[in-house]
Amino acid sequence: MATKLRQVGWFRRQTIEVEPHQLLLLQPEWGSDRVRRVLFDRVSTLVVWRVMPWDRIIVVLILLGVPTTLLLSLGSDDVTLTIGGIFLGIALLLVRYVVVRRTHFAVARADTMYRFNTIAGSGKVDRFVDELVKAIETVQAAHETITPQTPQPATDDEPSIPLD
């Protein structure tokens, strides 16, 4: 089964899926997925890099840090367990973001750059990249076989075309 990646942005989500001949970028709507396709035949480069998702880290710190501060300021023993739970949540999320980081992809096809990113484990990302690279190479190799780009040189043995 093909590896799927999910991109969760501020205002949109996207699912990225590798098919044998194309990359599908699916953007969910109410009752359908908007489809964008990147055909592999003319893909020239794929660039992959990882960065720290600072925006996510800041949002987690605000969303979970503010209630923790409020509960700490109450100073009651009853809320100790709650504060501990929130701290654990913060720690787990931050550790995940620091370890996994955000992986960006840039696929160049015929002067158009398709960019997407995801926060996923390195194993999943590696599997996805392997599948993508293999699929692109297979399609381009098949394309070279079907339609050779270099014309065959004419030999003297071939009959000349009559021009009358």
Partner: peptide
């Protein structure tokens, strides 16, 4: 910035 780049041989437009 360190990136990992993959190069391919794109089919020329017919």
């Amino acid at each position: 910035l360190i990136t990992k780049a993959y190069l391919f041989t794109p089919a020329l437009p017919e």
